[in-house]
Amino acid sequence: MKISSTRLISYAISISIEEASTELIRCGKQGNILSAKFLPKGLISFGGGGLIFNDQNLITMASKGFTIPKIFPFLFNLKDAIASLKTLLQIKKILTGNELSEEKVRIALRSAIGATSVFANFDSNYSDFFTEMRDEVIEFKIEGTEFSFYLCFSDSKKWELRNTSCKNSTALLVFSDLFSAYETVSGKFDHLADPALGRVKLHGNIPLLEKIGYISRRVHKVVPSII
């Protein structure tokens, strides 16, 4: 599937929003899971369909933190739209807040991994990276916390972000603390220096981590973020 660069970026933003809302709820907060649905004419809906943006609106929202959704769907699905909007605002509040909480890092990290998975799956620049791979599971952890994220590559030949994995991890990336994980998501990660200094530990299939890391750095350059 060939996707335009604008569509790819908005797709990555959409998935990062969906993943952020999923993690928000996993953290015990109230809100909607903002499942992204891709509609004709470059539109994307979140949640129950009340919140719809076009690609450019979505990119504006990710870079500036605010944009206007499509008015008619918003009014016709007012209850859902308001609940979805509240979820979005809650995510924004947590991510732009000063406190470095576990909740903030979890949401940011999951969101970033989700965006990376989109580029890994659909950016033609990386189509050669995974052609010969079969089952791969990259596990992301932070020392001192209990949660993990799993980026899984299976028969579908696509990467999927999951809360659990039915297979053993083939690569493991462990951040030494919340700060290191957040620095990574914020684009301040030095992929050569930080492992050397113990801020992140890499185990298992290192070439695979190199590939995903390379894509994630590219994502950070081209996909706007409110962080």
Binding site: H191, L192, A193, A196, G198, L202
Partner: peptide, 27 residues
């Protein structure tokens, strides 16, 4: 570690290429 910290300020990645710590056992 002290040398590496100095290096990472003036050399991209601190140490690059096949001898980069990432390719071995960094800690």
């Amino acid at each position: 570690d002290e040398l590496f910290l100095r290096a990472s300020k003036v050399i991209p990645g601190g140490i690059y290429g096949h001898v980069t710590p990432v390719a071995g056992l960094p800690r």
